[in-house]
Protein backbone atom coordinates (compact mmCIF):
# COMPACT_ATOMS: atom_id res chain seq x y z
CA UNK A 1 0.00 0.00 0.00
CA UNK A 2 2.75 2.45 0.97
CA UNK A 3 4.44 1.71 -2.35
CA UNK A 4 1.22 2.38 -4.16
CA UNK A 5 0.65 5.79 -2.63
CA UNK A 6 4.28 6.56 -3.31
CA UNK A 7 3.91 5.80 -6.98
CA UNK A 8 0.89 8.06 -7.26
CA UNK A 9 3.03 10.91 -6.01
CA UNK A 10 5.92 10.04 -8.32
CA UNK A 11 3.81 10.18 -11.47
CA UNK A 12 6.28 8.19 -13.53
CA UNK A 13 5.28 6.02 -16.47
CA UNK A 14 6.74 2.80 -15.10
CA UNK A 15 4.56 2.81 -12.00
CA UNK A 16 1.55 4.00 -13.98
CA UNK A 17 2.06 1.07 -16.37
CA UNK A 18 2.21 -1.34 -13.45
CA UNK A 19 -0.94 0.05 -11.87
CA UNK A 20 -2.86 -0.10 -15.13
CA UNK A 21 -1.80 -3.70 -15.54
CA UNK A 22 -3.32 -4.55 -12.14
CA UNK A 23 -6.52 -2.72 -13.04
CA UNK A 24 -6.73 -4.31 -16.48
CA UNK A 25 -6.49 -7.76 -14.91
CA UNK A 26 -8.79 -6.89 -11.99
CA UNK A 27 -6.35 -8.21 -9.41
CA UNK A 28 -7.03 -7.78 -5.66
CA UNK A 29 -4.54 -4.90 -5.63
CA UNK A 30 -6.55 -3.07 -8.31
CA UNK A 31 -9.36 -2.42 -5.82
CA UNK A 32 -6.94 -0.44 -3.65
CA UNK A 33 -5.64 1.46 -6.67
CA UNK A 34 -9.19 2.38 -7.67
CA UNK A 35 -10.18 3.45 -4.17
CA UNK A 36 -7.16 5.68 -4.06
CA UNK A 37 -7.60 7.18 -7.52
CA UNK A 38 -11.31 7.73 -6.99
CA UNK A 39 -10.76 11.00 -5.11
CA UNK A 40 -8.11 12.27 -7.49
CA UNK A 41 -10.08 12.01 -10.68
CA UNK A 42 -12.35 14.50 -12.41
CA UNK A 43 -10.01 17.02 -13.99
CA UNK A 44 -9.21 15.44 -17.36
CA UNK A 45 -11.20 16.17 -20.49
CA UNK A 46 -12.33 12.73 -21.67
CA UNK A 47 -12.87 12.44 -25.41
CA UNK A 48 -14.48 9.36 -26.92
CA UNK A 49 -13.81 8.51 -30.54
CA UNK A 50 -16.15 5.98 -32.08
CA UNK A 51 -17.21 4.81 -35.54
CA UNK A 52 -17.19 1.81 -37.87
CA UNK A 53 -14.10 -0.39 -38.41
CA UNK A 54 -11.65 1.04 -40.89
CA UNK A 55 -13.06 4.58 -40.76
CA UNK A 56 -9.70 5.87 -39.54
CA UNK A 57 -10.28 6.27 -35.80
CA UNK A 58 -6.74 5.27 -34.84
CA UNK A 59 -5.11 7.44 -37.47
CA UNK A 60 -7.30 10.37 -36.46
CA UNK A 61 -6.56 9.86 -32.76
CA UNK A 62 -2.85 9.74 -33.63
CA UNK A 63 -3.00 13.04 -35.50
CA UNK A 64 -5.12 14.70 -32.80
CA UNK A 65 -2.62 13.59 -30.18
CA UNK A 66 0.28 14.95 -32.14
CA UNK A 67 -1.43 18.31 -32.27
CA UNK A 68 -2.49 18.27 -28.60
CA UNK A 69 1.04 17.29 -27.58
CA UNK A 70 2.37 20.52 -29.06
CA UNK A 71 -0.02 22.41 -26.78
CA UNK A 72 1.95 21.20 -23.79
CA UNK A 73 -0.75 18.86 -22.51
CA UNK A 74 -0.37 15.49 -20.85
CA UNK A 75 -2.32 13.00 -22.94
CA UNK A 76 -3.59 9.51 -22.17
CA UNK A 77 -4.89 7.28 -24.97
CA UNK A 78 -6.98 4.17 -24.42
CA UNK A 79 -7.50 2.02 -27.53
CA UNK A 80 -9.92 -0.87 -27.52
CA UNK A 81 -9.88 -3.76 -29.99
CA UNK A 82 -11.99 -6.94 -30.05
CA UNK A 83 -11.29 -10.19 -28.21
CA UNK A 84 -11.85 -13.46 -30.06
CA UNK A 85 -15.00 -15.25 -28.86
CA UNK A 86 -13.26 -18.55 -29.64
CA UNK A 87 -9.71 -18.30 -28.27
CA UNK A 88 -9.95 -15.24 -25.95
CA UNK A 89 -6.94 -13.90 -27.83
CA UNK A 90 -6.73 -10.46 -29.44
CA UNK A 91 -4.64 -8.58 -31.94
CA UNK A 92 -4.40 -5.01 -30.73
CA UNK A 93 -3.44 -3.03 -33.79
CA UNK A 94 -4.13 0.61 -32.98
CA UNK A 95 -0.59 1.62 -32.06
CA UNK A 96 0.63 0.92 -35.58
CA UNK A 97 -1.41 3.97 -36.72
CA UNK A 98 0.13 6.11 -34.00
CA UNK A 99 3.80 5.37 -34.58
CA UNK A 100 4.77 9.01 -34.71
CA UNK A 101 3.62 9.40 -31.08
CA UNK A 102 6.22 6.93 -29.81
CA UNK A 103 8.83 9.60 -29.14
CA UNK A 104 6.52 12.07 -27.40
CA UNK A 105 7.17 11.95 -23.65
CA UNK A 106 3.76 13.45 -22.76
CA UNK A 107 1.69 10.76 -24.50
CA UNK A 108 0.80 7.48 -22.77
CA UNK A 109 -0.99 4.79 -24.78
CA UNK A 110 -2.80 1.76 -23.34
CA UNK A 111 -4.39 -0.90 -25.56
CA UNK A 112 -7.25 -2.98 -24.20
CA UNK A 113 -9.05 -6.06 -25.50
CA UNK A 114 -12.83 -6.16 -25.05
CA UNK A 115 -12.65 -9.49 -23.13
CA UNK A 116 -16.29 -10.32 -23.77
CA UNK A 117 -17.78 -6.86 -23.32
CA UNK A 118 -20.23 -5.91 -26.06
CA UNK A 119 -20.80 -2.16 -25.82
CA UNK A 120 -17.73 -1.07 -27.80
CA UNK A 121 -15.39 -0.80 -24.82
CA UNK A 122 -13.51 -3.18 -22.53
CA UNK A 123 -15.16 -3.60 -19.13
CA UNK A 124 -12.04 -2.14 -17.49
CA UNK A 125 -12.12 1.03 -19.63
CA UNK A 126 -13.75 3.30 -17.06
CA UNK A 127 -11.30 2.11 -14.38
CA UNK A 128 -8.29 2.61 -16.67
CA UNK A 129 -9.52 6.11 -17.53
CA UNK A 130 -9.97 6.88 -13.84
CA UNK A 131 -6.36 6.00 -13.04
CA UNK A 132 -5.06 8.03 -16.00
CA UNK A 133 -7.22 10.93 -14.81
CA UNK A 134 -5.84 10.61 -11.29
CA UNK A 135 -2.36 10.65 -12.81
CA UNK A 136 -3.09 14.21 -13.92
CA UNK A 137 -3.56 13.66 -17.63
CA UNK A 138 -5.10 16.79 -19.15
CA UNK A 139 -6.79 14.97 -22.00
CA UNK A 140 -7.79 11.32 -22.29
CA UNK A 141 -8.76 9.97 -25.71
CA UNK A 142 -10.75 6.73 -25.78
CA UNK A 143 -10.89 4.91 -29.07
CA UNK A 144 -13.68 2.34 -29.16
CA UNK A 145 -13.68 -0.88 -31.17
CA UNK A 146 -15.14 -0.51 -34.64
CA UNK A 147 -18.87 -0.15 -33.95
CA UNK A 148 -22.17 -0.76 -35.73
CA UNK A 149 -25.44 0.90 -34.77
CA UNK A 150 -25.87 0.34 -31.05
CA UNK A 151 -22.52 0.08 -29.26
CA UNK A 152 -22.43 3.30 -27.29
CA UNK A 153 -20.95 2.53 -23.88
CA UNK A 154 -18.54 5.36 -24.63
CA UNK A 155 -21.37 7.79 -23.90
CA UNK A 156 -21.20 6.83 -20.22
CA UNK A 157 -17.45 7.47 -19.96
CA UNK A 158 -16.64 10.40 -22.25
CA UNK A 159 -17.37 14.14 -21.94
CA UNK A 160 -17.13 14.74 -25.67
CA UNK A 161 -18.06 12.07 -28.21
CA UNK A 162 -16.74 12.10 -31.79
CA UNK A 163 -18.45 9.89 -34.34
CA UNK A 164 -16.09 9.14 -37.21
CA UNK A 165 -17.69 8.00 -40.42
CA UNK A 166 -16.56 7.74 -44.05
CA UNK A 167 -18.20 8.70 -47.34
CA UNK A 168 -20.55 6.21 -48.93
CA UNK A 169 -21.99 4.32 -45.98
CA UNK A 170 -25.59 4.42 -47.13
CA UNK A 171 -28.10 7.14 -47.94
CA UNK A 172 -29.90 9.86 -45.99
CA UNK A 173 -32.08 7.37 -44.17
CA UNK A 174 -29.07 5.84 -42.40
CA UNK A 175 -28.35 9.14 -40.68
CA UNK A 176 -31.92 9.33 -39.41
CA UNK A 177 -31.91 6.03 -37.54
CA UNK A 178 -31.86 5.95 -33.79
CA UNK A 179 -28.78 4.76 -31.93
CA UNK A 180 -25.19 5.58 -32.73
CA UNK A 181 -26.12 8.50 -35.02
CA UNK A 182 -27.66 10.39 -32.10
CA UNK A 183 -24.83 10.27 -29.62
CA UNK A 184 -22.17 12.49 -31.14
CA UNK A 185 -21.17 15.95 -29.96
CA UNK A 186 -19.02 16.28 -33.06
CA UNK A 187 -19.37 14.44 -36.37
CA UNK A 188 -16.36 13.66 -38.51
CA UNK A 189 -16.39 12.50 -42.11
CA UNK A 190 -12.88 11.09 -42.45
CA UNK A 191 -11.26 9.98 -45.71
CA UNK A 192 -13.02 13.02 -47.14
CA UNK A 193 -10.88 12.87 -50.28
CA UNK A 194 -13.01 9.95 -51.37
CA UNK A 195 -16.11 10.43 -53.53
CA UNK A 196 -19.37 11.16 -51.76
CA UNK A 197 -17.95 13.18 -48.85
CA UNK A 198 -20.07 16.24 -49.56
CA UNK A 199 -23.24 14.15 -49.76
CA UNK A 200 -22.41 12.57 -46.39
CA UNK A 201 -21.93 16.01 -44.87
CA UNK A 202 -25.20 17.18 -46.38
CA UNK A 203 -27.06 14.19 -44.89
CA UNK A 204 -25.57 14.81 -41.48
CA UNK A 205 -26.41 18.51 -41.71
CA UNK A 206 -30.01 17.67 -42.41
CA UNK A 207 -30.11 15.24 -39.51
CA UNK A 208 -28.58 17.73 -37.06
CA UNK A 209 -30.96 20.49 -38.16
CA UNK A 210 -33.98 18.21 -37.84
CA UNK A 211 -32.93 17.32 -34.30
CA UNK A 212 -34.39 20.61 -33.15
CA UNK A 213 -32.78 23.53 -31.45
CA UNK A 214 -30.28 22.57 -28.82
CA UNK A 215 -27.79 24.56 -26.87
CA UNK A 216 -24.93 22.66 -28.49
CA UNK A 217 -25.45 22.03 -32.16
CA UNK A 218 -23.01 19.27 -33.19
CA UNK A 219 -20.59 20.54 -35.83
CA UNK A 220 -19.68 18.37 -38.82
CA UNK A 221 -16.07 18.13 -39.93
CA UNK A 222 -14.37 16.80 -43.02
CA UNK A 223 -10.93 15.32 -42.40
CA UNK A 224 -8.25 13.39 -44.25
CA UNK A 225 -6.37 12.09 -41.24
CA UNK A 226 -3.52 10.53 -43.23
CA UNK A 227 -2.73 13.99 -44.61
CA UNK A 228 -3.28 15.93 -41.39
CA UNK A 229 -6.11 17.76 -43.09
CA UNK A 230 -8.92 19.23 -40.97
CA UNK A 231 -7.28 18.33 -37.64
CA UNK A 232 -6.74 21.90 -36.38
CA UNK A 233 -10.40 22.78 -36.98
CA UNK A 234 -11.46 19.60 -35.20
CA UNK A 235 -9.31 20.36 -32.14
CA UNK A 236 -10.79 23.85 -32.12
CA UNK A 237 -14.33 22.48 -31.84
CA UNK A 238 -13.33 19.90 -29.21
CA UNK A 239 -12.01 22.75 -27.09
CA UNK A 240 -15.20 24.72 -27.76
CA UNK A 241 -17.27 21.76 -26.59
CA UNK A 242 -15.31 21.56 -23.36
CA UNK A 243 -15.97 25.25 -22.75
CA UNK A 244 -19.65 24.69 -23.46
CA UNK A 245 -19.77 21.81 -20.94
CA UNK A 246 -18.18 23.97 -18.26
CA UNK A 247 -20.36 26.99 -19.00
CA UNK A 248 -23.59 25.00 -18.98
CA UNK A 249 -22.82 23.08 -15.81
CA UNK A 250 -22.85 19.80 -17.74
CA UNK A 251 -19.18 19.19 -16.92
CA UNK A 252 -20.04 18.77 -13.25
CA UNK A 253 -23.38 17.10 -13.87
CA UNK A 254 -21.88 14.41 -16.11
CA UNK A 255 -19.26 13.58 -13.48
CA UNK A 256 -21.86 13.29 -10.74
CA UNK A 257 -24.13 11.11 -12.87
CA UNK A 258 -21.17 8.92 -13.74
CA UNK A 259 -20.29 8.48 -10.07
CA UNK A 260 -23.80 7.31 -9.24
CA UNK A 261 -24.05 5.04 -12.29
CA UNK A 262 -20.78 3.43 -11.29
CA UNK A 263 -22.03 2.91 -7.75
CA UNK A 264 -25.19 1.19 -8.96
CA UNK A 265 -23.40 -1.02 -11.44
CA UNK A 266 -20.97 -2.07 -8.72
CA UNK A 267 -23.83 -2.83 -6.33
CA UNK A 268 -25.45 -4.84 -9.08
CA UNK A 269 -22.44 -7.03 -9.79
CA UNK A 270 -21.64 -7.41 -6.09
CA UNK A 271 -25.22 -8.50 -5.36
CA UNK A 272 -25.25 -10.93 -8.25
CA UNK A 273 -22.05 -12.47 -6.93
CA UNK A 274 -23.39 -12.70 -3.36
CA UNK A 275 -26.65 -14.29 -4.51
CA UNK A 276 -24.77 -16.83 -6.56
CA UNK A 277 -22.51 -17.68 -3.62
CA UNK A 278 -25.55 -18.06 -1.40
CA UNK A 279 -27.32 -20.38 -3.82
CA UNK A 280 -24.22 -22.53 -4.01
CA UNK A 281 -24.10 -22.81 -0.23
CA UNK A 282 -27.73 -23.83 0.31
CA UNK A 283 -28.83 -27.26 -0.85
CA UNK A 284 -32.54 -26.39 -1.02
CA UNK A 285 -31.80 -23.45 -3.36
CA UNK A 286 -29.44 -25.51 -5.45
CA UNK A 287 -32.22 -28.04 -5.90
CA UNK A 288 -34.54 -25.30 -7.12
CA UNK A 289 -31.98 -24.22 -9.71
CA UNK A 290 -31.71 -27.84 -10.85
CA UNK A 291 -35.50 -27.94 -11.27
CA UNK A 292 -35.38 -24.79 -13.40
CA UNK A 293 -32.65 -26.38 -15.48
CA UNK A 294 -34.83 -29.41 -16.14
CA UNK A 295 -37.78 -27.19 -16.99
CA UNK A 296 -39.86 -28.46 -14.05
CA UNK A 297 -40.00 -25.11 -12.32
CA UNK A 298 -40.41 -21.69 -13.93
CA UNK A 299 -37.63 -19.10 -13.56
CA UNK A 300 -40.08 -16.26 -12.87
CA UNK A 301 -41.45 -17.66 -9.61
CA UNK A 302 -38.13 -19.15 -8.59
CA UNK A 303 -36.14 -15.94 -8.96
CA UNK A 304 -38.65 -14.12 -6.76
CA UNK A 305 -38.56 -16.90 -4.19
CA UNK A 306 -34.78 -16.88 -3.99
CA UNK A 307 -34.44 -13.11 -3.70
CA UNK A 308 -37.34 -12.78 -1.21
CA UNK A 309 -35.85 -15.48 0.93
CA UNK A 310 -32.43 -13.85 0.92
CA UNK A 311 -33.84 -10.48 1.94
CA UNK A 312 -36.06 -12.04 4.65
CA UNK A 313 -33.10 -13.89 6.00
CA UNK A 314 -31.02 -10.73 6.01
CA UNK A 315 -33.73 -8.79 7.88
CA UNK A 316 -34.21 -11.42 10.54
CA UNK A 317 -30.46 -11.50 11.02
CA UNK A 318 -30.29 -7.76 11.37
CA UNK A 319 -33.13 -7.30 13.82
CA UNK A 320 -32.41 -10.42 15.77
CA UNK A 321 -35.88 -11.80 15.14
Amino acid sequence: MEDLIGSFEKKDNVSLGKMLKEVENQTPLSLEILKLSSFRKGKAHIIGVTGPPGSGKSTLVGKMCKKLATMDLRIGVVCVDPTSPFTKGALLGDRIRMQELAKLPNVFIKSLATRGNLGGLASSTADIVQVLDAYEMDVILIETVGVGQIEFDVLGVADTVLLVSVPGLGDTLQTLKAGIMEIADIYVINQADRPGADESVKDLNLMVKESGKREWSPPIHKTVATQDSGIDELIHDITAHKKYLERSGLWKEKRQTRNVTRLYSMIESLLAQRVEDHINREESLKAKVQDVMKGERDPYTTSHEIVDRLIAKHNSYQYGG
Binding site: S84, G89, L92, I96, Q99
Partner: peptide, 18 residues
Protein backbone atom coordinates in the same frame (compact mmCIF):
# COMPACT_ATOMS: atom_id res chain seq x y z
CA UNK B 1 3.35 -14.79 -35.53
CA UNK B 2 1.15 -12.09 -33.92
CA UNK B 3 -1.90 -13.64 -35.49
CA UNK B 4 -0.89 -17.12 -34.35
CA UNK B 5 -0.26 -16.01 -30.78
CA UNK B 6 -3.68 -14.39 -30.89
CA UNK B 7 -5.09 -17.80 -31.80
CA UNK B 8 -3.17 -19.22 -28.85
CA UNK B 9 -5.29 -16.98 -26.64
CA UNK B 10 -2.80 -14.17 -26.04
CA UNK B 11 -3.32 -10.43 -26.40
CA UNK B 12 -0.80 -9.14 -28.91
CA UNK B 13 -0.07 -5.43 -29.31
CA UNK B 14 1.49 -4.95 -32.73
CA UNK B 15 3.84 -1.97 -32.87
CA UNK B 16 5.24 -2.16 -36.37
CA UNK B 17 8.78 -0.78 -36.75
CA UNK B 18 10.27 0.77 -33.64
Amino acid sequence: VSRMLRDEGMEVVYLGNQ
